[in-house]
Each structure stands twice: as structure tokens, then as C-alpha cells.
Design a protein around this nucleic acid. Sequence first.
DNA 1: GCCAACGTTGGC
DNA 2: GCCAACGTTGGC
Length: 155
Amino acid sequence: MAKYWLMKSEPGSYSIDDLKREGQTFWDGVRNYQARNLMRDEMQVGDRVLFYHSNTAPVGVAGLARVVREAYPDHTARDPHDAHYDPKASHENPRWYMVDIEFEEKFPQILGLDQLREIKGLQEMVLLNRSRLSVQPVRTAEFKTIVKLARSLSE
DNA sequence: GCCAACGTTGGC
DNA sequence: GCCAACGTTGGC
């Protein structure tokens, strides 16, 4: 059974349009243990992802992606020139992991955080309660509600 | 750019 | 293992 996730990105560094253009990307730069554990231990090929734009205007769900490669070491942790460099990461103990995702769909409009807050049935979403986690699980019903609503938005 | 929330680090 | 200091996230 495919699982459902929400992954956040600041569109200034990587947006749904970037993913659409490139088709596929590796999700590097996660430096939070809870988010890492979810990627490393829970994510499987075929899982579906809500691609979320954070730290922008408007913030919200921008589209859909799919996991195409399970977790493997995030090489950027061992690159001193990378913004997410971690001196404690090593070849033997990579410490940080990433997955690959592939573009699936861009919604006609961003489904805004303010809109999500108003929907009954989404009130227990991790996004609305633990806003800082950058990779988080989404319930099946939540995922379906969001996709249906987002697709109903006009251009 | 501000700042609240909250995760991480490190001295003890 | 506690907890203060510090750093980061992310909405506004």
C-alpha cells in the first residue's frame, strides 16, 4: 500500500516548476532527525507526495510527486561547500539520507494554507499542528481531500 | 524582517 | 540526563 507524505520546499530554492522541468530530483538537505527517519524508514517507491511551497506567498500545496527511489546517503552532507554541510557525516556513517521523487502534477493554483485550515477533516493534519516538520506523513483521507479540492480550483 | 515555536548542542 | 543557550524553520 502506497503511503502519503507532504514535503516542503522553499520555491526560491526548488519549486514545483523546477520539478516539472527536470522531471525528477533528489531530496537533499533534510537535517532533522524526525524527517530523516520518515524518509529512511518509512518511504517506499510508489508513495505519493504533496509538494508544499513554504516561506513564500502564498504558502500551500503546489502539486504532486511520487517517490521513485528509496532512501540513500545524502552526499551534500559531506560537501564542505554545501549549505547543508555536516562535519559529523562520514562515508561509514552518512547520518543524513535523501530519496528521489518524480514530478506528477502541478495544481492549477496553489491550495493555500489558509484554505486548508478551513476544511473540516484536515484539522488533525501534521501540517496544521506541527508546522515545522519538513517531511511529514499525511493520512489517506487527507491526501484525497486535498487532491480533489486542488483539482477543482480553476486556473 | 520579525519572532514564536521548537529542535539541537553541550556544559555540568 | 537536565536544561540553558543557541540555531533554524516558516508564517506573517
